[in-house]
Amino acid sequence: MSGPARVLRAASRLRGRNNEGFVAATMALVVVLVGGIDSRFWSLATVFNVLHDSFEPLVFSLGFLMVLLTGGIDVSFDAIGIFAGYTLSLSAGRPWLASHVLPAFVAAAAIGLGLGVVNAAATAILRLPVLIVTLGTRGIIAGVLLSAVGSTYVSVLPGALGAFPGRDLIRVQAGGGQSVGLHVLVIPLVLLCLGLAFFLRQTVLGRGIYAVGGDLEAARRVGFPVRWIQGFVLCLAGTFAGLAGMIHVSLIGYGNPFDLVGLELNVIAAVVLGGASIFGGRGSVVGTILGVLFVSLINYSLILLGIPSTWQQVAIGILLVLGILAQTVSRRRARSFLATGGASA
């Protein structure tokens, strides 16, 4: 094996199974470049801000990833999220919610789970693709929220929820006398990511999720309960969406039933940037975390560099084109390598 080939092989190992290394390297490049232009960038404040911006999209993305791994595309998660978050913002004054935020998150997760069960049942009974079922249920969920639950803006969240945005673990001084905190949510979210990664890699059900997305018929013949797995991921995605909606409402400090609409494409973009295949069977928790952090990092860098926020979407669009291109090309190369028996790469 010649020198360049060895370098290539080492590089491909670093790149990770789903291009995670590629995203990480690009992130490092962005950090170096932006920091070179403005050294304020290299600070804890940046880390805290990027993390803070990533909480809500991360939880949505992880839920979306679960369904995507089985080969389904769930577009109802934003409707489920705002349904759960807004419903709880309406009842934030109730005594059982006033003293602690935990009941609110549990209740939001329960609402999300309930709506996820609806998605799962509809998919199982109607035997239609997830995309089509959730296109329908998202309209129904949003409609029920606005016509039956409420359509007015809740501007103040009382009690523990109202104080939640300021619950920081530590605070550091940033430029201009402002301080930036690391929000307490980072702990449960790290645990959630670790738990989910373990679940996907080490449990039979987790492997089943990949199996269903990789090859439905093969998974069925191996003996995976395909329909149950397809339903299970929708329930899980609903639960995650409920949690994410609650994170959105509690961090932003108000309840607006019209929020989050049109978020679908951004979440899909982050998950895809993180290396997940849109056809299922490929993707990882690490990749999704990187994808979400990457999008937040770009947005934050643009703000810091004084580039008008209106250019954010262009930047994300270009990144998405490049990221998808890199994936498509590298995957095709891998495939042709296999096809020729490894004789020529």
């Binding site: 973009a269 895809v272 849109i278 209106t310 930047a315 998405l320 084109v321 498509t328 090309v329």
Partner: peptide, 23 residues
């Protein structure tokens, strides 16, 4: 030409074209 799956390609260009309009 580049054989990117249509749903991904148009998702990306949707961000791109929409972003250009906003910018």
């Amino acid at each position: 030409g580049l054989r990117i799956p249509p749903i991904l390609a148009t998702l990306a260009t949707s961000e791109l074209f929409g972003g250009l309009a906003i910018a």
